[in-house]
Amino acid sequence: MARSEIDYGGMMHRAMQGLIAGVLRDVASQGLPGEHHFFITFDTRDEGVEMADWLHERYPEEMTIVIQHWFDNLTVDDQGFTITLNFGNSPEPLRIPFDSLRTFVDPSVEFGLRFETQEHDEDDEEDDDGSDAVEEPEAPKGSGEVVSLDKWRK
Rank of each mutant, 00 (worst) to 15 (best):
V146S: 05
A21G: 10
D123S: 12
D99W: 00
F87C: 05
T64A: 06
I83H: 09
I67N: 07
E116I: 08
D132H: 09
A2R: 14
Q79I: 04
L24D: 01
M63S: 04
D128T: 04
W152E: 10
D127C: 11
I6F: 14
L113Y: 06
N86R: 12
R3L: 11
M12W: 00
F81I: 05
N89M: 14
L113Q: 06
G112R: 08
T44A: 11
L94V: 07
L32V: 10
M51N: 03
G18A: 10
R58D: 08
E110N: 09
A133Y: 01
L101V: 12
D78G: 08
D106V: 03
E35F: 03
V49A: 02
F71C: 07
L101M: 14
G9V: 02
P137Q: 06
K151M: 05
D7G: 05
A139D: 03
E138A: 12
Q68E: 08
A52L: 11
R153S: 07
E50A: 14
E122Q: 12
G80F: 01
F38V: 02
E62G: 06
P91A: 11
I65H: 03
G31H: 10
Q17E: 15
H56V: 12
F115P: 05
S90T: 14
R58C: 06
R95Q: 08
E145C: 00
L74N: 12
E62H: 09
T64K: 09
